[in-house]
């Protein structure tokens, strides 16, 4: 899967979980940019992404992401 396809799928998951169709993700997006993205929904997002891509992240991976770009990079290595 291409990187921008992964980003688009992750964006759909965000829109679905956070119930907001106007969310647009880029590599630089962080939780500060999206109101509904708090520590509670963060976990729901990760669970939804793991389910959709059929992957299981390690705790270290999840805790070290600084923005969407790093999440996508991690997903790319897992789905390659």
């Amino acid at each position: 899967m291409e990187r921008n396809e992964v980003l688009a799928r992750v964006q759909d998951i965000f829109r679905d979980v956070l119930d907001d169709d106007e969310i647009v993700l880029s590599d630089a997006t962080t939780a500060d940019d999206i109101d509904e993205w708090d520590s509670l929904s963060h976990i729901q997002l990760i669970v939804a992404i793991e389910k959709a891509f059929k992957v299981k992240f390690t705790s270290k991976e999840i805790l070290s992401w600084k923005n969407i770009g790093e999440l996508i990079d991690c997903l790319m290595t897992r789905t390659a």
Binding site: S39, H42, I43, I46, V47, S59, I62, L63
Partner: peptide, 10 residues
């Protein structure tokens, strides 16, 4: 809190 949440996410 976040590490625990991540660990208990299942």
């Amino acid at each position: 809190y976040m590490p625990l949440n991540v660990a208990f996410r299942g």
